[in-house]
Structure formats: C-alpha cells, structure tokens
Design a protein around this nucleic acid. Structure first.
Lengths: 189, 189
DNA sequence: GTCTATATTTGGATAGAC
DNA sequence: GTCTATCCAAATATAGAC
C-alpha cells in the first residue's frame, strides 16, 4: 500500500501560503516551497500536477475560506457596528498584527500567471463586497458604500506595505481600528 | 576607440525601473532587464559590476531624485495647502494615475537583498518625513502629523495595490485627491 | 504518496574579442 | 562600451523505484 500523506492537505496549504505571501509567485521557488512543506519537489508535483500555478491557486482557495470566517461577524451580526469591529479584530489577527504580507498583493505582481492573478482579484472582490454591504447596512448609498469599502481595503493593504518596509505595524493597526468609522461613518480620525 | 554608450544612463535607469517596479527584485531577471534596456546582459554588468542589486539601488537613487521634484511644492510653497495639492497632483502623474506599481512596495518583498530593501525604506522615509513636515506646518503636533503622514502613505500605496489587482485607478485617485485634507485637516471624506 | 535520479531551461555572472 | 561565447548554479518539471 502507498505511504500515508506525511502532511495533511490543510497544513500543507498553510505552509505554502507562508512562502507565497512573503516572496510572491516568481520569488517562491519550488525548493523553498518544498522545504516549507517538508516534502521533496517531486512530491509537490504529485499533489499539484500543474505545478506552482496550481499551488498558488489552491492557496488562494484556502485564503478565501479563511477570509469567510474573518468576514462572518461583519456579514451576520445583528449590530453592524459590533460586527465590523469584530471583523476588524480578526483582520488584525489574520495579518499577524500588521507584519505579515498579504498574498493578494504579492500574487498580483507581473510575472504571476493570469489565472492566479484573476483568482487573487476574485478573493479581494469578495472582501471588498462584504465591506461595501456593511456600509450599506450602516446607511450609505451603494456608490458611497463601495468607495468607502475600496478605500478601507487600500488603507489596510497600504498598512501592510508600510509594515513590510519598516517592520512596524502602526499604520496597519490604525487602519484596522478605524475600520468601523471608515465603513459606517462617525467623527473623522 | 570604444563604442559610444548606446543608452544614456538616465534613460537606462528609467527602463530598468520599469522592470523592477512591475516584477519586484526576484522577478526581474537579467534577461528581462537587458531586453528593456536594449542591451546584452554582459553590457549591463559593465555598467553595474555588482549585478542586479546594484541596478536596483541605482534605480532607487534615481527614484529619490524624482521624488524630490514631486515633493518640492509641499516643502517650499508659501501656502501649505496649495503646496500639498500640487504635490498630490505630481504624485498622481508619477504613478501613471494609479495604474503603475510602486518600486518601494515591490522592492520590499522577501528575497530582495537587505541593502536594496534598506534603500527602499530610506526613500519611503524621505517621502513620509516631507508629508509629516507639511502636517506640522498645517498646525498638527508632531506625533499626530507623523501618524497622518504614515496613513496618507499607506492609503496611496494601498491604492496602487488596488490598481494592480483590478486595473482600476479609483481608489488611488481618491487617495491623491484627499491628500490635503488628510495632512492638513478639514471636513472628513 | 514519497522518494532518488535526471532531463531541460533559465538565471546570474565572467572572459575576452572588437 | 558592447558584443559573443561560456560557465555554473538554480529553477521547473518528469520518470520510475519503493
């Protein structure tokens, strides 16, 4: 009988995601991916016959699932403000307080296969849509809600760029803390 | 006598910057760099004996010079508000309206040599410092001015991430248009 | 399912002719 | 200063044993 899986699918994707998020698609060599997975390169090809692009897509699929859990309070909580605040907290945790890069950013660089980039854009759209829906629930008309959601996304992603440049999480932390006000209004920061 | 330079230094850096900004350090292969420069790989090594890292550093040096021109109104104009507005306009042009990636972002990915990353952080610091100084001139105490400058930087960089993902410049455009308010105060966006 | 071994291409970098 | 030719290492990917 064949050997048992030495790494479970889910844990494997976590490890691969770590490499993609830090180095982008081209920077993620099969050597680095195999080392992170604690598998040989050939074993990775057994799991992902289409190679690195398929690995990146699987990672993005998994990110979309995790993102669903992060967005759940914002989508479902009876009190919109509380829901957004809880989602903001989860976003902070998801990005290690602001010091972890975002795979949606790093997998959007030129050199990334189109289908991977399209998948990243799809995940980002899911996220922005949920924020726009919350802003609508908060009373904004659809157009303004959308703009606020896009701006909130930009500020969070930019906070992560800041964190990557300076290894400092201040800008991201403020962006997360300010998320309820950005989406629902209130006194300016 | 030796052949004349087929590409002037300045134009050469523009072409190399284009590759680095789009693909990051690891994604920028010597093949791609040579093609953009319309030179052979060996000719690039004649100009940059230390190889790709030196090319990236030279690109960042050039970006710092260009950035100086972008920041000049914000630094020197008698009316701070007008100065910031003019700098915001130049930032918009510098980033192709929001559809060009920022080399400070893409050269901060893991896999980039430390001295290149440090140079990128230095250029970003120059930029943020100038925005913080403008916010101080606008009446904010140093701590709040600094936070506002960092947030403005994050929002612009995030707007470029958004642009890269969706090939849409809306978020960046709003960030640039809102720069005077972000640094100097006024009614919230 | 994982492994060793290998094929093949691309990438970074150097030597030396012109 | 640019070029051709070359070296060597690393990268992607495949074949086949266990």
């Amino acid at each position: 009988m064949p050997r048992p899986q030495s790494v479970h699918d889910d844990e494997l994707l976590v490890r691969l995601a770590e490499v993609f998020r830090r180095t982008g698609f081209e920077g993620a060599s099969l050597g680095a991916l195999a080392e992170a997975a604690q598998l040989r390169r050939a074993s990775l090809y057994h799991r992902f016959p289409d190679g690195k692009a398929q690995m990146a897509e699987a990672v993005l699929d998994r990110v979309e699932v995790l993102l669903g859990e992060v967005l759940e309070p914002m989508r479902g909580a009876p009190d919109v403000t509380e829901g957004v605040a809880e989602t903001a907290k989860r976003i902070g945790e998801f990005y290690g307080g602001g010091l972890l890069p975002c795979v949606l950013d790093t997998l959007a660089l030129a050199g990334t296969p189109d289908r991977v980039r399209a998948r990243a854009a799809g995940v980002a759209t899911t996220w922005i849509d949920a924020m726009a829906a919350a802003a609508v629930r908060g009373g904004y008309p659809p157009d303004e809600a959308r703009a606020r959601a896009e701006d909130a996304f930009a500020r969070l992603e930019g906070g992560l760029v800041f964190g990557r440049l300076f290894e400092e999480s201040t800008a991201f932390q403020r962006a997360a803390a300010d998320l309820p006000r950005q989406l629902l209004g209130g006194p300016p920061a």
